[in-house]
Design a protein around this nucleic acid. Sequence first.
DNA 1: GACCTCATACTCCACTGTGGAATGTCACGA
DNA 2: TCGTGACATTCCACAGTGGAGTATGAGGTC
Lengths: 176, 176
Amino acid sequence: MSISYIPQMASRQLNATAASLLGFLHRGPMTGWELMRTAEQSIGDFWSLTQSQVYRELAQMADQGLVTAGERGQRERRPYDLTDAGRAAFRDWALEPPGEETIRFPLLLALNFGAHIPADRLAAFVAHHRAIHQARLTQYELDSLSQIDDPYRKATLDFGLAYERAVLGWFDRLEI
Amino acid sequence: MSISYIPQMASRQLNATAASLLGFLHRGPMTGWELMRTAEQSIGDFWSLTQSQVYRELAQMADQGLVTAGERGQRERRPYDLTDAGRAAFRDWALEPPGEETIRFPLLLALNFGAHIPADRLAAFVAHHRAIHQARLTQYELDSLSQIDDPYRKATLDFGLAYERAVLGWFDRLEI
DNA sequence: GACCTCATACTCCACTGTGGAATGTCACGA
DNA sequence: TCGTGACATTCCACAGTGGAGTATGAGGTC
């Protein structure tokens, strides 16, 4: 008997993390390390990512022909370069409607079960997180002082400012 | 030759999702389905979870003796009940400091690469997401009208209100 | 110039989280 | 009585997290 199979058309869809790597590679060839640092800086505040995943996506995209791995250089560093297929895949991704945001906020989870947590403990958790958000806001305010050419960069930074201000306001109104 | 092994002390730590299920089970035995709906209602806005994981965690916790699976009832429904070990595990979890929040906001990712996206397309994405947040805010405002006894519930709801208002404000100031 | 330390750079693994398909059951209305 | 839709669970592939492990080279120190 013959086995019929459906050829994988255009392979699977890109996930957003992989797509963003392709996006950054438009600036020129980069290594996993460089991509990781670039991504952390520009999208890290609203798109968490990890080293492991960056390297995994790169390897996978190399298999799929979306990027090509260059020769190893110093310290095993391996630059990746965009292919035409990669450029096309990125363009396709950019046309897809983005999904809704997901938030996972462990402090709110603790707060939700606040009745089961010793009051002083809970207060300490809250104080700790308030400090973190205060620090983040201060950093964003610093960032926003410098001239920002890219309107898209400005938009995402503005989001960070709005978010952190709202969270701090909430902390200040919070009655344990 | 003899194989030496280290007995698992107190097994692994609970993850936050599993812990929250134990938290809800303090109210009495529940099935996976009921837990899912309860969790969605009370923590779904800041702690995303999926059916698959709820059932997986329940099965795992049953193996570990943190819950006991009751007899199947109508429609295969299987109630889970808290054990003393489960209560203790929850108490331990509640003392651990909660981690930082993670946000993954695909719209901001699209915006970050806005230069690669046709302007009308991007505008449509933005409009769509604005509507979603408007609807969420309206719902939260409705919720907040009713008398809320639990101060912890009130605190998390207030967070939702602050967040959605901030996001909408950002949308309104957004210059593509 | 031998040594140390630290930042760079990558790999691997176990676990957690997401999304959707598949399956079956019962309640309820046409 | 015959759908239809809400209920309820299971399974799977893939995405994402966190940490350990390894190795290289740059720079400072004695």
